[in-house]
Design a protein around this nucleic acid. Structure first.
Length: 675
DNA sequence: GGGGCTTGTCATAGT
DNA sequence: TCACTATGACAAGCC
């Protein structure tokens, strides 16, 4: 444990706790930074204790920034409410804290944050921290606010900076000085303070260098881990942990590390019962609008600590995480390439840390190889985590809840599903299960029940768990329709039974849960239906192998995938069929138009032909009217015809001859054909 | 209450 | 052999 006063111009300081615990065979590497408020007004000064003071209604945990490491623990941007790196750190932070009236702010993180924070080049901050640490290590008593630190060799009376007018003046002076300045402790001369300051900075530089080396080592380890890709073994984890532990021990023995022993820590914490870790709750931060924790999920600190060693909760009980919301392809690519920042800390990430890293437990756990999972006996944890099919079956049979997986009715492990750390949204892990149950109960419309033969390929657990489910869910076709505009609560609307049914229908569909989504939710399948369906087959199989899933879940996921793909195929098929029908209709229309056009053209041709016939007839009679025989009499057109010869001469031939000649030619042709 | 339409699902053949 | 697609057929629900 380090008592730090990094930039405590106003008297505040950080208490850095490094905890190594071995719980149930798991090593827990937990670093805490407790921010100690500057001394309050005199009426409170005596109530402040080295690790805090009296119980305060508001204890806040500042979330460790996701992207900035140490250097981002600054004030919030007024608009985005995110950490504003450009704003002066201390003043804003202290004002923020003071505004909240929080006595101190514990900060939890893991080594990676410290390491990465330093490695990111933010050495000023770490230098300040380490300077303060060195101050504390040197026994100057200036490492922490004077209000909370007894003078070395003192009589136990808590003397604060405010105890003397000079100290108050120095405090005001210190408040105007740069951030990383080591504050001047009261009760010393300026020369003594200067000497102490140089000494502190010397030690701090050493510590900083040590930390930078550690950071470099971690970076190298990270790079090596990347090179080895996902094949990190449990042995490497052990080695990393051993290295870290050994490094700490060495630093502790060399006096460069001011870490307290665990016994000291526990004793100290237990002595401050009102400020024990159990009393530090992130939930309190939710009541402070605009605090850094606004964007975070609320978590009880004690739970956060316990979650460090509760891996199955991290992986299985908090499935609604960003990983499952990401694009599966991208997720899988990242999973293979994702090198854990530090292998010895991965397993021990607390949910708080995970939230701070903007990563989820699933993200991190996904990066673990199979050996790691085996080491922590994930399978047993998974079973313990409420994936027992019998449990599901019991939930189905619960008369009041139907398919309601109201985990508040379940055992403790399942109740942890309600951890505020779990985000809403992913299938199977939302805590808003009352809606689901109501949907299942009221949505069971119709009488279709799958035949037993259709369930033949399922194992008995599948059948037993889903017989009830099918009775209640299978009947409900969920149509994604928008709710009616009319007010369903109106008297006229709610009178008829059909209207009541419509109310339930639209109420159910408003949740937009398909049957497969309900099934997946009921079975706690930690993937969305969309992901299951759209995921490439390789990724899908890889996902099945990477995650511990029961046969029931695997079978359901495959069925969901099959149905989902077939549903899409059916939709495409119907769309194509409709397109074909429309195309055929278009063809029919085109052909009908063509037919009409041809008819019009034929009519026009016939009309032209008739016109020409008429003209020819008129011309014929006109010619005959002008012809005369040898006696000067007109020629009867009924007895004669005009016949054109090959040489262009026109002959007047009696019709009888033409008829006889035609007969003769016809007979000749027939004879030729016969012969 | 029956018919038409939409949608989901299953079975099956084909790729 | 497996995964996927295409498609007919059926059932359920809504209008």
């Amino acid at each position: 444990m380090k008592l730090l006063k990094p930039w405590g111009a106003a008297g505040g300081g950080f208490l850095h706790l490094t905890i190594l615990l071995s719980l149930a065979g798991l090593r827990v590497d937990l670093d805490l930074d407790l921010y100690l408020l500057p001394p309050p007004p005199a009426v409170f000064r005596d109530e402040l204790l080295p690790l805090g003071g009296p119980a305060h209604p508001a204890h806040a945990i500042t979330p460790f920034p996701a992207s900035g490491g140490w250097g981002r623990a600054g004030p919030l941007h007024p608009k985005t409410r995110e950490l504003d790196p450009a704003a002066p750190l201390e003043g804003h932070l202290l004002r923020e804290v003071r505004a909240l009236g929080v006595p101190f702010i514990p900060r939890t993180r893991v080594d990676a944050w410290l390491v990465h924070g330093v490695a990111d080049g933010d050495t000023d901050r770490s230098h300040g921290l380490l300077s303060a640490a060195a101050s504390s290590a040197a026994g100057t008593g200036a490492g922490v606010d004077g209000s909370s630190q007894e003078e070395p060799g003192g009589d136990g009376e808590r003397r604060t900076v405010r105890d003397s007018p000079l100290a108050a003046e120095e405090e005001e002076k210190a408040a105007a000085e740069p951030v990383a300045q080591v504050p001047v402790a009261s009760g010393r001369t300026s020369q003594e303070n200067e000497v102490l300051r140089e000494k502190c900075e010397s030690v701090a530089r050493s510590s900083c260098k040590d930390n930078e080396e550690t950071a470099s080592a971690h970076e190298q380890s990270l790079q090596q881990h990347n090179n080895e890709n996902k094949n990190t073994t449990a042995d490497r984890l052990d080695q990393e942990v051993a290295k870290t532990t050994e490094s700490r021990n060495e630093r502790h023995l060399n006096g460069t590390d001011t870490s307290f022993s665990l016994e000291d820590l526990l004793q100290l914490l237990s002595s401050q019962s009102e400020y024990s870790l159990e009393g530090i709750s992130l939930e309190d931060t939710s009541s402070f609008p605009g605090t850094i924790s606004e964007s975070m999920n609320v978590v009880n600190f004690s739970q956060a600590v316990s979650h460090d060693v509760n891996l199955h909760e991290a992986m299985l009980l908090c499935p609604n995480n960003t990983f499952f919301r990401r694009d599966p392809q991208e997720a899988f690519l990242q999973l293979n390439a994702q090198a854990l920042p530090d292998t010895n800390l991965t397993v021990f990430h607390s949910p708080v840390d995970i939230q701070m890293c903007n990563l989820t437990s699933q993200d991190l756990l996904y990066g673990l190889d199979a050996n790691t999972f085996d080491e922590i006996n994930l399978m047993s944890l998974a079973v313990e985590g409420g994936f027992d099919p019998m449990q599901v079956s019991e939930l189905f049979e619960e008369p009041d809840s139907g398919l309601m997986l109201n985990l508040s009715h379940s055992n403790t492990s399942i109740t942890k599903h309600h951890s505020p750390l779990c985000n809403e949204g992913a299938i199977g892990y939302t805590s808003d299960l009352d809606n689901v149950s109501q949907h299942h109960l009221e949505g069971a419309v119709g009488g279709y029940c799958p035949q037993p033969s259709k369930l033949g390929h399922m194992d008995h657990r599948y059948q037993s768990a889903f017989q009830e489910l099918f009775h209640q869910v299978y009947h409900n076709h969920t149509y994604h329709l928008k709710p009616p505009i009319s007010d369903p609560t109106s008297e006229s609307f709610s009178k008829s039974g059909k209207s009541q049914k419509m109310i339930r229908y639209f109420s159910d569909t408003s949740r937009n849960l398909s049957r497969d989504e309900q099934r997946a939710k009921a079975l706690h399948i930690p993937f969305s239906v969309e992901e299951i369906v759209r995921m490439p087959v390789d990724s899908f199989n890889s996902m099945l192998s990477r995650h511990y899933l029961t046969d029931l879940q695997v079978s359901m996921m495959r069925d969901i995938r099959r149905r989902g793909k077939n549903k899409v195929a059916a939709q495409n098929c119907r769309r194509r069929k409709l397109d074909r029908i429309l195309n055929l209709e278009d063809d029919v229309c085109n052909l009908q138009a063509r037919k009409e056009t041809l008819k019009r053209e034929q009519a026009q041709c016939n009309k032209a032909i008739n016109t020409m016939k008429q003209k020819l007839h008129d011309l014929y009679h006109d010619v005959f009217s002008k012809l005369r025989d040898d006696q000067g009499r007109p020629i009867n057109p009924n007895q004669y015809i005009l016949q054109c010869s090959h040489d262009g001469t026109v002959l007047i031939v009696p019709k009888e001859l033409v008829a006889t000649g035609q007969k003769t030619e016809t007979q000749k042709i027939k004879r030729k054909n016969r012969s």
